[in-house]
Nucleic acid binder design. Structure first.
Lengths: 128, 128
DNA sequence: TCGAGATTGTTATCTTATAACATAACAATT
DNA sequence: AATTGTTATGTTATAAGATAACAATCTCGA
C-alpha cells in the first residue's frame, strides 16, 4: 500500500519512457492505478514535481503534459519542440541561448532562476 | 446584452492594462461581470484567445495568466520575465534569440510557428 | 424578406491542480 | 523499547482552469 518516493518516481519515469508522446498527469495516474488502485492525484503530482525538480522529467507548460528528460538532465535551458500535428516532442540543450537571455534580463536587473522555452510547430516528419 | 468581439476585446484589454499584475481568466471574468452580470467563461476565453492571436495580449503558460502586450505587438519571440516574489511581469523582445533557436530546430527539420519563452526569478526590486 | 453562414450567448461538464487534513514511518532521546 | 518530534505519504474534498455542444442572434446577399 505504501511506497517510497524514489520507487514511485522510477515507476512514473518508466511509464513516461514507455510512451513516445507526452503524458498528462491524469494519464499517468490511470496507468499507476492498474497496479495500485488506491493512488490519488496528489501522489502523482508530488511525484512529478520531484522528477521535474531533479531534472529527470520536464513539464510542458503550454500543453500541460510531461516528458522524460532525454538530455542527461544537465541543460541549463531545456528547449522543447512540440509538434502540433503528431504530438511528438523533441528536446534540445538550449544553453547557447543563455547569453542572449541574460542580456535581456540584465536590462531590468532581473535574476533568472528557471527558463522555460517551448516551441510549437511541425516536426520533420509532419512538415515533409 | 450582446456586444461585438472588438468592443469586448477593448474592455478586456483595458482591464488588463488597469492592473499591474498578470490576471487569470477568471479574475477577468469577475471584473467583466461587474458591468455585465451574464458573462460566462467561454466569452472570456474566446476574447482572450482573439487578443493573444492578435498579439495584443500574452498568455503566461507557466502561471496560467494573461498580460497586455507592452511591446507594440511586433516581437517574433516575446520573452516574459516573471517575478516569483511580487508577481510582476516584464516583457522583452526576444527576436535576438531567433538565430540560436532556429539552429536548434534545424537539427531535426522542425518548422517553428510559435515560441514560448518565460523566465522565472526575482525582479530588480525584489532581488535587491 | 428569406435563409445561409457566421458570430455570440448559455449550459453543462470536463480536465487540471491543490488545500487541508489524516496517517504512517523514521530518528533521537531517554 | 516507549515517547515524542519531524518528515513523508495517503486521502478526501474541492478549487481553478478550460471547453464541448448547442441555442440564439445577427449579417448580408439574393
Amino acid at each position: 500500500m505504501r511506497k517510497y518516493a524514489a520507487a514511485r518516481q522510477d515507476d512514473v519515469l518508466s511509464i513516461l519512457n514507455a510512451c513516445d508522446r507526452p503524458m498528462t498527469a491524469y494519464q499517468i495516474l490511470e496507468r499507476l492505478q492498474v497496479g495500485e488502485p488506491g493512488i490519488a492525484p496528489p501522489t502523482v503530482y508530488r511525484t512529478l514535481s520531484a522528477l521535474t525538480d531533479q531534472g529527470r522529467a520536464h513539464r510542458l507548460e503550454s500543453i500541460k503534459a510531461f516528458v522524460p528528460c532525454r538530455c542527461n538532465h544537465v541543460e541549463s535551458v531545456p528547449v522543447l519542440a512540440i509538434c502540433e500535428d503528431c504530438g511528438s516532442v523533441d528536446e534540445h540543450d538550449g544553453s547557447d541561448l543563455l547569453p542572449s537571455l541574460t542580456a535581456l534580463t540584465d536590462q531590468s536587473a532581473f535574476r533568472a532562476q528557471r527558463h522555460i522555452v517551448e516551441i510549437h510547430g511541425q516536426c520533420g516528419n509532419c512538415a515533409a
